[in-house]
Design a protein around this nucleic acid. Structure first.
Length: 424
RNA sequence: GGAGGAGUGCCUGAGUGGUUGAAAGGGCCGCUCUCGAAAAGCGGUAAGGGAGAAAUCUCUUCGUGAGUUCAAAUCUCACCUCCUCCGCCA
């Protein structure tokens, strides 16, 4: 959500944002509704003021006849007032609906583009392994690798959990916990406060983060009107909802584990095999709330991106970082980087992390504020980034560390968790 | 799942229809006193919206929503949250 005053004064900017993000939104319509809203608001407030004044008189006046006269007049006013209030409420509902659709303005550095193919590589790390070079071998895909090593059971997974169901087992289960534990420890060391966040969450945090209403097909809803979060970003942003933080408490840097659930409604045909795209997975996520300065957001955006890169480098997995183009940005995102990890069997990088900042877009919706040095109350800025997503990251770990005989070397930094250096 | 109880400002807590945006105490901030501190005294201390250059004026908010009434923190209903007891249970 953006400030209505900002929207009114920067209609062109918002229209441009919509174009760049390939989101249909007409500022003109909203401004018309807003004008109507302000007009009605004024009328309603004048009537209420009148009512307040006359109410005081009713209490003070002794004369019974006079009193009766005012009460009669107030009865009439009440009729008119409640009609106007109903009208105002209807307009406000429409207004709110539109306000939730206003796209946040992307940073000028975000490239134009139609889809994720237009995302631009900004840096690359690591040597892509050359398995098939002289005397080498053709690298196996993660499914074959994991099934032959007994790390996953996909057949029984779908028997039990349906489409995209899976069991991680044996060293697959151990490796999953190892990489999450490693990540959590690394980030806790850098000062991020660890959390285990709820996944079953009320609607308001979904609206607040911008996952709803736009993504309603993407989110599971329960019969108790709770929703299953697709990322810890949702509960973690809800954490400080309606709070006024102190400036000295900022930045809030959190690292949260949570199970994640996604319907993948728009991706029926995509990645139907293996453990790349799942309805249920686990994730360790970085969340930052910082002061409401663009430079702060940028600084933290780079920092949380670097944190994830550091983990990838510790795991020694080749990756590159792309800056997402306009069309690949969500409604609230100002700028986003994806980290994509090398998948040898596909000979390409695939998305494993997503790092974005929102300015105060989410904070406005969630009403998360802080008091700055001058005592002024402002909305915080918010950011989030994947620290590691499991089991997706296992694809790159296992495929990059595989050997000719089908065994897999355990990344050095994970050995202490598995108590072994080879999965065979 | 069953039976009760409660939700008021930063906190504790008063308030059962009308000068209550809200007593009192605590906290916090400022000032006085003091060499300084403590204590004491005095003053201040919600957020959001609208109008205005500003001073200021005005509207809304006592868990949320709906209702009764000329008028609601106060009455009615629904929902949410928390607490206690019973049952079940990782």
């Amino acid at each position: 959500m953006l400030d209505i005053k900002f929207i009114r004064e920067n209609a062109d900017l918002i229209n441009g944002a919509g174009r760049k993000k390939r989101i249909n939104f007409e500022v003109k319509k909203l401004i018309e509704i807003d004008n109507k809203r302000l007009e009605l608001l004024k009328e309603v407030e004048e009537m209420r003021a009148k009512q307040n004044v006359e109410s005081d008189k009713i209490v003070k006046i002794q004369d019974a006849g006079e009193k009766e006269k005012i009460i009669t007049a107030m009865k009439e006013l009440k009729e008119n007032l409640s009609d106007k209030e109903k009208e105002l409420k209807k307009i406000e509902e429409k207004w709110n609906e539109l306000m939730l659709q206003v796209p946040n303005v992307p940073d000028p550095s975000v490239p134009e583009g139609e889809s994720d193919v237009d995302n631009q590589e900004i840096r690359k790390w690591g040597e892509v392994p050359q398995f098939s070079a002289d005397g080498g071998f053709e690298p196996k895909g993660h499914i074959e690798l994991m099934e032959s090593l007994g790390l996953v059971d996909l057949e029984r997974g779908s028997k039990v959990a349906g489409f995209r169901g899976y069991f991680l087992k044996g060293d697959g289960a151990m490796l999953a916990f190892a990489v999450m534990q490693f990540t959590l420890e690394k980030l806790a060391e850098s000062g991020f406060e660890p959390f285990i966040a709820p996944s079953l969450v009320k609607e308001e945090s979904f609206l607040g983060t911008g996952w709803l209403p736009q993504g309603k097909d993407e989110v599971y809803k329960t019969q108790d009107n709770l929703y299953l979060a697709g990322t810890a970003e949702v509960p973690m942003m809800g954490l400080h909802k309606d709070e006024i933080l102190k400036e000295e408490d900022l930045p809030k840097t959190y690292v949260a584990f949570s199970p994640c659930f996604r319907r993948e409604a728009g991706s029926y045909g995509k990645d139907t095999k293996g453990i790349y795209r799942l309805h249920e997975f686990m994730k360790v996520e970085q969340i930052v709330l910082c002061e409401a300065e663009h430079q702060e957001s940028v600084k933290w955006h780079e920092e949380i991106t670097r944190n994830s890169e550091n983990i990838m480098q510790a795991l020694k997995i080749p990756y590159h970082v792309v800056v997402n183009c306009g069309a690949d940005l969500g409604l609230g995102q100002v700028k986003k980087y994806d980290i994509e990890s090398w998948v040898p069997s596909e000979k390409r990088y695939r998305e494993t992390h997503s790092s974005s900042y929102f300015h105060d877009f989410q904070a406005r919706r969630l009403n998360i504020r802080y008091k700055d040095k001058e005592g002024k109350i402002r909305f915080v800025h918010s950011l989030n980034n994947t620290a590691v997503a499991v089991p997706r990251i296992l694809i790159s770990i296992l495929e990059n560390y595989q050997q000719k005989d089908g065994t897999v070397i355990v990344p050095e930094v994970l050995r202490k968790y598995l108590n072994k250096d080879l999965i065979s």
